[in-house]
């Protein structure tokens, strides 16, 4: 069972890899776009085209299949990188669908502990704002959890969230007093390999998010986060343990 659990979290990383898209970026000059897309779940290939030809554009493929083409400017406006005002984009338009699909999964090839903490904080805030639903967070050690304990107590006390905290390495951790906060310490071995956060979005499914990060020997992390509801569901179904310590 224990090794299956590890494979479970591993499977989220693997599923994201499989969904990885390749982008061919056509423009006279590369500019900063490749750097901008660096943390996304994308392989970006730049191909220079002559000036006075088409405006810079992106071709998106997944598994070798063409998925869409969009002007670079449309992407820049959508994500707020443009000097122009952020575009008012019709959420039902093809352009919107293509851009959202392009930016759906996010892999960080390498992330410092601080960057990872900031990302996790963003997702904790998201769960806080929604205020209901189930939040699972896995810490690699009691030492990693200790500084977050106050935050999680508050999160449980102030919201209707069902909070599940997983702490690895078998160290004794005091359960939290809040009835909607459950501590899991028993599936120690596997948890220690991954840092994860999964929020089901509560009553707002589109607010769901799943993050799985794996620590590397050099102390950086490699991982993925996704807002895709199907992947979030999958992450929920793969979590190591359902029963708490009490």
């Amino acid at each position: 069972m224990a090794s299956d659990d590890a494979a479970g979290l591993r499977a989220i990383l693997d599923a994201a890899e499989r969904r990885r898209k390749s982008v061919t970026y056509y423009a006279p000059e590369a500019g900063d776009l490749i750097e901008r897309l660096d943390t996304r779940n994308l392989d970006v290939e730049f191909r220079a085209i002559p000036p006075r030809g088409p405006e810079p554009f992106l071709i998106v493929r997944a598994g070798g299949q063409f998925r869409g083409a969009m002007p670079v400017e449309a992407l820049r406006e959508h994500v707020g990188w443009s000097r122009n005002r952020r575009g008012e984009m019709d959420e039902h338009s093809e352009a919107y669908a293509i851009i959202v699909e392009l930016l759906d999964d996010t892999v960080f090839a390498s992330l410092s502990k601080r960057q990872l903490l900031l990302t996790v904080r963003e997702f904790e805030d998201r769960a806080w704002r929604v205020g209901n639903g189930v939040l699972h967070t896995g810490f690699q050690s009691a030492t990693a959890f200790a500084p977050q304990r106050g935050l999680y107590r508050e999160l449980a006390a102030e919201t209707a969230l069902d909070v599940h905290i997983y702490v690895a390495d078998g160290e004794r951790v005091e359960p939290l007093d809040e009835p909607n906060a459950t501590l899991h310490t028993e599936p120690a071995e596997e948890i220690g390999r991954y840092w994860f956060l999964v929020f089901d979005g509560g009553e707002e499914r589109e607010q769901g998010v799943a993050l799985v990060a794996e620590q590397r020997p050099d102390e950086t992390f490699r991982g993925v986060w996704t807002y895709d509801p199907d992947l979030v569901d999958r992450a929920l179904s793969l979590l190591p343990s359902v029963d708490g310590d009490r």
Partner: peptide, 23 residues
């Protein structure tokens, strides 16, 4: 590559995006 380029070029004409059918 020519298909990519033409699809990209026609984004300028049509002021939009292109899906798999277009390509």
């Amino acid at each position: 590559e020519l298909a990519d380029i033409l699809v990209g070029w026609e984004l300028d004409d049509e002021d939009g995006t292109a899906g798999p059918d277009k390509h």
